[in-house]
Protein backbone atom coordinates (compact mmCIF):
# COMPACT_ATOMS: atom_id res chain seq x y z
CA UNK A 1 0.00 0.00 0.00
CA UNK A 2 2.68 2.48 1.02
CA UNK A 3 6.19 2.27 -0.31
CA UNK A 4 8.71 4.77 0.96
CA UNK A 5 12.27 4.64 -0.18
CA UNK A 6 15.14 6.83 0.96
CA UNK A 7 12.86 9.72 1.74
CA UNK A 8 14.52 12.85 3.10
CA UNK A 9 13.37 16.33 3.97
CA UNK A 10 15.99 18.97 4.47
CA UNK A 11 15.12 22.38 5.84
CA UNK A 12 17.62 25.21 5.88
CA UNK A 13 18.44 24.77 9.54
CA UNK A 14 17.91 21.08 10.11
CA UNK A 15 17.11 17.73 8.61
CA UNK A 16 13.54 16.86 9.51
CA UNK A 17 13.48 13.44 7.88
CA UNK A 18 16.67 11.63 7.12
CA UNK A 19 16.73 8.90 4.51
CA UNK A 20 13.90 6.68 5.72
CA UNK A 21 12.52 3.63 3.97
CA UNK A 22 9.58 1.46 4.95
CA UNK A 23 6.62 -0.34 3.51
CA UNK A 24 3.09 -0.84 4.68
CA UNK A 25 1.11 -3.82 3.42
CA UNK A 26 -2.63 -3.63 2.73
CA UNK A 27 -4.71 -4.32 5.84
CA UNK A 28 -2.02 -3.41 8.35
CA UNK A 29 -2.46 -0.96 11.19
CA UNK A 30 0.90 0.68 11.58
CA UNK A 31 1.83 2.96 14.46
CA UNK A 32 4.19 5.78 13.71
CA UNK A 33 5.86 6.52 16.97
CA UNK A 34 8.34 9.11 18.08
CA UNK A 35 8.98 11.99 20.44
CA UNK A 36 7.77 15.43 19.44
CA UNK A 37 9.83 16.84 16.60
CA UNK A 38 10.97 13.44 15.39
CA UNK A 39 9.68 14.08 11.88
CA UNK A 40 6.38 12.19 12.02
CA UNK A 41 4.20 15.01 10.72
CA UNK A 42 6.73 15.92 8.04
CA UNK A 43 6.74 12.33 6.81
CA UNK A 44 2.94 12.16 6.75
CA UNK A 45 2.78 15.47 4.90
CA UNK A 46 5.13 14.13 2.29
CA UNK A 47 3.01 10.98 1.95
CA UNK A 48 -0.11 13.05 1.38
CA UNK A 49 1.63 15.20 -1.20
CA UNK A 50 1.37 18.37 0.83
CA UNK A 51 5.10 19.04 0.85
CA UNK A 52 7.69 17.55 -1.47
CA UNK A 53 10.68 15.55 -0.26
CA UNK A 54 14.19 16.85 -0.74
CA UNK A 55 15.13 13.44 -2.08
CA UNK A 56 13.73 9.94 -2.28
CA UNK A 57 10.37 8.66 -3.42
CA UNK A 58 7.09 7.57 -1.93
CA UNK A 59 4.15 5.86 -3.53
CA UNK A 60 0.63 5.04 -2.41
CA UNK A 61 -1.02 2.02 -4.00
CA UNK A 62 1.47 2.16 -6.86
CA UNK A 63 1.02 5.87 -7.58
CA UNK A 64 3.93 8.17 -6.90
CA UNK A 65 2.82 10.87 -4.49
CA UNK A 66 4.34 13.62 -6.63
CA UNK A 67 4.19 12.66 -10.26
CA UNK A 68 0.70 11.15 -9.86
CA UNK A 69 -0.34 13.23 -6.90
CA UNK A 70 -4.08 13.40 -7.60
CA UNK A 71 -4.37 9.63 -8.10
CA UNK A 72 -2.40 8.94 -4.94
CA UNK A 73 -4.47 11.44 -2.97
CA UNK A 74 -7.68 9.75 -4.09
CA UNK A 75 -6.61 6.67 -2.17
CA UNK A 76 -5.89 8.52 1.05
CA UNK A 77 -8.10 9.72 3.86
CA UNK A 78 -5.94 12.14 5.78
CA UNK A 79 -6.64 13.64 9.16
CA UNK A 80 -4.03 16.29 9.96
CA UNK A 81 -2.79 17.14 13.41
CA UNK A 82 -5.17 19.41 15.36
CA UNK A 83 -7.96 18.67 12.85
CA UNK A 84 -8.52 21.90 10.95
CA UNK A 85 -12.23 22.45 10.17
CA UNK A 86 -14.38 25.31 8.93
CA UNK A 87 -16.11 26.84 11.94
CA UNK A 88 -18.91 28.38 9.94
CA UNK A 89 -20.28 25.13 8.52
CA UNK A 90 -22.59 22.51 9.92
CA UNK A 91 -21.32 18.97 10.42
CA UNK A 92 -23.29 17.30 7.64
CA UNK A 93 -22.78 20.23 5.30
CA UNK A 94 -19.04 20.04 5.86
CA UNK A 95 -18.90 16.30 5.25
CA UNK A 96 -21.01 16.76 2.13
CA UNK A 97 -18.56 19.36 0.84
CA UNK A 98 -15.59 17.10 1.56
CA UNK A 99 -17.28 14.14 -0.13
CA UNK A 100 -17.88 16.18 -3.28
CA UNK A 101 -14.34 17.48 -3.15
CA UNK A 102 -13.14 13.89 -3.18
CA UNK A 103 -15.15 13.23 -6.29
CA UNK A 104 -18.35 11.69 -4.94
CA UNK A 105 -21.55 12.97 -6.54
CA UNK A 106 -25.26 12.82 -5.82
CA UNK A 107 -26.44 9.58 -4.26
CA UNK A 108 -22.86 8.36 -3.76
CA UNK A 109 -21.98 11.45 -1.77
CA UNK A 110 -25.13 11.22 0.36
CA UNK A 111 -24.42 7.59 1.13
CA UNK A 112 -20.76 8.22 1.96
CA UNK A 113 -21.72 11.04 4.31
CA UNK A 114 -24.40 9.09 6.13
CA UNK A 115 -22.10 6.08 6.51
CA UNK A 116 -19.31 8.22 7.92
CA UNK A 117 -21.77 9.92 10.29
CA UNK A 118 -23.03 6.53 11.43
CA UNK A 119 -19.56 5.09 11.92
CA UNK A 120 -18.17 8.02 13.86
CA UNK A 121 -21.25 8.45 16.06
CA UNK A 122 -22.12 11.93 14.84
CA UNK A 123 -25.82 11.33 14.45
CA UNK A 124 -27.06 13.62 17.21
CA UNK A 125 -24.88 16.53 16.16
CA UNK A 126 -25.04 16.37 12.38
CA UNK A 127 -27.00 19.63 12.20
CA UNK A 128 -24.80 21.55 14.63
CA UNK A 129 -22.32 24.25 13.72
CA UNK A 130 -18.76 22.97 13.88
CA UNK A 131 -17.76 25.97 16.01
CA UNK A 132 -20.09 24.75 18.78
CA UNK A 133 -18.61 21.24 19.00
CA UNK A 134 -16.39 19.91 21.76
CA UNK A 135 -12.84 18.84 21.00
CA UNK A 136 -13.83 15.16 21.00
CA UNK A 137 -16.58 15.69 18.46
CA UNK A 138 -14.37 17.85 16.27
CA UNK A 139 -11.87 15.02 16.24
CA UNK A 140 -14.62 12.64 15.14
CA UNK A 141 -15.71 15.02 12.39
CA UNK A 142 -12.09 15.03 11.20
CA UNK A 143 -12.10 11.25 11.14
CA UNK A 144 -15.46 11.16 9.37
CA UNK A 145 -13.97 13.48 6.76
CA UNK A 146 -11.04 11.11 6.26
CA UNK A 147 -13.46 8.19 5.89
CA UNK A 148 -16.09 9.80 3.73
CA UNK A 149 -14.96 8.46 0.36
CA UNK A 150 -14.08 5.07 1.82
CA UNK A 151 -10.36 5.33 1.00
CA UNK A 152 -8.05 2.35 1.03
CA UNK A 153 -5.57 4.09 3.29
CA UNK A 154 -6.20 6.19 6.36
CA UNK A 155 -3.43 8.47 7.56
CA UNK A 156 -4.15 9.87 11.00
CA UNK A 157 -1.79 12.37 12.58
CA UNK A 158 -2.07 12.25 16.37
CA UNK A 159 -5.80 11.52 16.30
CA UNK A 160 -6.22 11.23 20.07
CA UNK A 161 -4.35 14.40 20.88
CA UNK A 162 -6.22 16.37 23.53
CA UNK A 163 -8.98 13.85 24.21
CA UNK A 164 -9.97 12.68 27.68
CA UNK A 165 -9.35 9.02 28.68
CA UNK A 166 -12.89 7.90 27.87
CA UNK A 167 -12.77 9.49 24.47
CA UNK A 168 -9.36 7.99 23.80
CA UNK A 169 -10.75 4.57 24.65
CA UNK A 170 -13.71 4.88 22.32
CA UNK A 171 -11.50 6.32 19.61
CA UNK A 172 -9.21 3.32 19.92
CA UNK A 173 -12.16 0.98 19.52
CA UNK A 174 -13.18 2.89 16.43
CA UNK A 175 -9.74 2.56 14.91
CA UNK A 176 -9.64 -1.17 15.59
CA UNK A 177 -12.99 -1.45 13.89
CA UNK A 178 -11.78 0.56 10.91
CA UNK A 179 -8.70 -1.63 10.65
CA UNK A 180 -10.88 -4.40 9.33
CA UNK A 181 -11.62 -2.51 6.14
CA UNK A 182 -8.77 -0.04 5.79
CA UNK A 183 -5.02 0.13 5.93
CA UNK A 184 -4.15 2.58 8.68
CA UNK A 185 -1.04 4.61 9.36
CA UNK A 186 -1.40 6.33 12.68
CA UNK A 187 1.09 8.71 14.21
CA UNK A 188 1.20 9.21 17.93
CA UNK A 189 3.39 9.64 20.93
CA UNK A 190 0.98 7.81 23.21
CA UNK A 191 2.40 4.34 23.61
CA UNK A 192 -0.49 2.46 25.09
CA UNK A 193 -2.44 3.39 22.01
CA UNK A 194 0.03 1.74 19.71
CA UNK A 195 0.37 -1.32 21.92
CA UNK A 196 -3.35 -1.85 21.86
CA UNK A 197 -4.26 -1.06 18.30
CA UNK A 198 -1.31 -1.61 15.96
CA UNK A 199 0.10 -4.69 14.26
CA UNK A 200 3.38 -2.96 13.69
CA UNK A 201 5.34 -0.05 15.07
CA UNK A 202 7.81 2.22 13.36
CA UNK A 203 9.78 4.29 15.83
CA UNK A 204 11.19 7.50 14.50
CA UNK A 205 13.73 9.67 16.23
CA UNK A 206 15.48 12.75 14.90
CA UNK A 207 14.29 11.97 11.41
CA UNK A 208 15.53 8.38 11.34
CA UNK A 209 13.77 5.06 11.70
CA UNK A 210 15.33 3.40 14.72
CA UNK A 211 12.98 0.48 15.13
CA UNK A 212 10.45 -1.29 12.98
CA UNK A 213 8.57 -4.35 14.15
CA UNK A 214 5.68 -5.85 16.08
CA UNK A 215 5.01 -4.14 19.42
CA UNK A 216 5.61 -7.41 21.28
CA UNK A 217 8.87 -8.09 19.48
CA UNK A 218 10.17 -4.67 20.29
CA UNK A 219 9.49 -5.05 23.98
CA UNK A 220 10.83 -8.63 23.97
CA UNK A 221 14.07 -7.43 22.47
CA UNK A 222 14.39 -5.09 25.36
CA UNK A 223 13.44 -7.69 27.88
CA UNK A 224 16.96 -9.06 27.58
CA UNK A 225 17.97 -6.17 29.76
CA UNK A 226 15.71 -7.05 32.62
CA UNK A 227 14.67 -5.32 35.74
CA UNK A 228 14.10 -7.11 39.04
CA UNK A 229 12.48 -5.58 42.07
CA UNK A 230 13.09 -7.02 45.52
CA UNK A 231 12.03 -6.09 48.99
CA UNK A 232 13.93 -7.35 52.00
CA UNK A 233 14.80 -6.46 55.58
CA UNK A 234 18.48 -5.71 55.93
CA UNK A 235 20.93 -2.94 56.40
CA UNK A 236 20.67 -1.21 53.07
CA UNK A 237 24.30 -0.34 52.73
CA UNK A 238 25.55 -3.88 53.25
CA UNK A 239 22.73 -5.43 51.25
CA UNK A 240 23.35 -3.16 48.29
CA UNK A 241 27.04 -4.02 48.15
CA UNK A 242 26.45 -7.74 48.56
CA UNK A 243 23.79 -7.88 45.87
CA UNK A 244 25.94 -5.88 43.52
CA UNK A 245 28.69 -8.45 43.92
CA UNK A 246 26.51 -11.19 42.38
CA UNK A 247 27.80 -11.83 38.86
CA UNK A 248 25.55 -10.65 36.04
CA UNK A 249 24.17 -7.63 37.82
CA UNK A 250 24.66 -4.27 36.22
CA UNK A 251 23.29 -1.89 38.73
CA UNK A 252 21.51 -1.89 42.05
CA UNK A 253 19.53 1.08 43.13
CA UNK A 254 17.72 1.54 46.37
CA UNK A 255 14.31 3.09 45.96
CA UNK A 256 13.05 3.68 49.49
CA UNK A 257 13.04 2.28 52.96
CA UNK A 258 10.35 2.03 55.58
CA UNK A 259 10.17 0.08 58.84
CA UNK A 260 13.45 -1.66 58.14
CA UNK A 261 12.28 -2.95 54.75
CA UNK A 262 14.44 -1.93 51.84
CA UNK A 263 13.20 -1.80 48.29
CA UNK A 264 15.76 -2.36 45.54
CA UNK A 265 15.62 -2.20 41.81
CA UNK A 266 18.18 -4.37 40.09
CA UNK A 267 19.14 -4.19 36.48
CA UNK A 268 20.76 -7.30 35.13
CA UNK A 269 22.87 -7.92 32.13
CA UNK A 270 21.15 -9.37 29.06
CA UNK A 271 20.16 -13.03 29.34
CA UNK A 272 20.98 -13.42 33.01
CA UNK A 273 18.34 -14.55 35.43
CA UNK A 274 19.77 -13.75 38.83
CA UNK A 275 16.67 -14.35 40.92
CA UNK A 276 17.94 -17.62 42.24
CA UNK A 277 21.26 -16.16 43.34
CA UNK A 278 19.47 -13.36 45.10
CA UNK A 279 17.24 -15.77 47.02
CA UNK A 280 20.30 -17.79 47.92
CA UNK A 281 22.08 -14.69 49.14
CA UNK A 282 19.11 -13.67 51.24
CA UNK A 283 19.00 -17.14 52.78
CA UNK A 284 22.65 -17.24 53.73
CA UNK A 285 22.51 -13.71 55.14
CA UNK A 286 19.21 -14.51 56.90
CA UNK A 287 17.43 -11.49 55.45
CA UNK A 288 13.66 -11.78 55.45
CA UNK A 289 12.65 -11.56 51.78
CA UNK A 290 9.16 -10.27 51.16
CA UNK A 291 8.98 -9.79 47.43
CA UNK A 292 10.89 -10.63 44.33
CA UNK A 293 9.63 -10.11 40.81
CA UNK A 294 10.79 -9.35 37.31
CA UNK A 295 9.32 -6.42 35.53
CA UNK A 296 8.51 -6.97 31.88
CA UNK A 297 9.69 -4.21 29.62
CA UNK A 298 6.74 -2.47 28.05
CA UNK A 299 6.72 -0.62 24.78
CA UNK A 300 7.13 2.48 26.85
CA UNK A 301 10.43 1.16 28.17
CA UNK A 302 11.42 0.29 24.63
CA UNK A 303 10.55 3.76 23.48
CA UNK A 304 12.47 5.52 26.24
CA UNK A 305 15.41 3.17 25.90
CA UNK A 306 15.67 3.47 22.17
CA UNK A 307 15.04 7.16 21.76
CA UNK A 308 17.23 8.23 24.64
CA UNK A 309 20.17 5.99 23.93
CA UNK A 310 19.98 7.16 20.35
CA UNK A 311 19.90 10.80 21.29
CA UNK A 312 22.81 10.56 23.71
CA UNK A 313 24.97 8.68 21.24
CA UNK A 314 24.46 11.14 18.43
Amino acid sequence: MIKVSKLSKQYVERTAVNNISFEVEPGEIVGFLGPNGAGKTTTLRMLTGYIPPTSGTASIGGHDVFSESIKARQKIGYMPENVPLYDDMRVREYLRFRAQLKGLRGQEARQGVSEAIELCGLKQIKRQMISSLSKGYKQRVGLADALVNNPELLILDEPTNGLDPNQIRSFRELIKQLGIRHTILISTHILSEVEMTCNRVIILNEGKIIANGKPNDLSRELRSANTISIELKASTKIAKDLIASIPGIKKVSEENQSGGWGYFTIRTEPGNDVRESIVHLANTQEWPLREIRTRNATLEDAFVEITQSNTSSS
Binding site: R45, T48, G49, Y50, I70, K71, R73, Q74, I76, Y78, P80, N82, P84, L85, Y86, D87, R98, L101, K102, G103, D145
Partner: peptide, 14 residues
Amino acid sequence: KLGTIETLLTAPVQ
Protein backbone atom coordinates in the same frame (compact mmCIF):
# COMPACT_ATOMS: atom_id res chain seq x y z
CA LYS B 1 -4.94 30.45 9.74
CA LEU B 2 -7.40 27.59 10.32
CA GLY B 3 -5.03 25.09 8.72
CA THR B 4 -7.76 23.97 6.35
CA ILE B 5 -5.49 24.72 3.41
CA GLU B 6 -3.82 21.43 4.33
CA THR B 7 -7.05 19.41 4.21
CA LEU B 8 -7.96 21.15 0.95
CA LEU B 9 -4.69 20.48 -0.81
CA THR B 10 -4.33 16.92 0.42
CA ALA B 11 -7.75 16.10 -1.01
CA PRO B 12 -7.63 15.32 -4.72
CA VAL B 13 -7.86 19.01 -5.61
CA GLN B 14 -5.60 20.80 -8.02
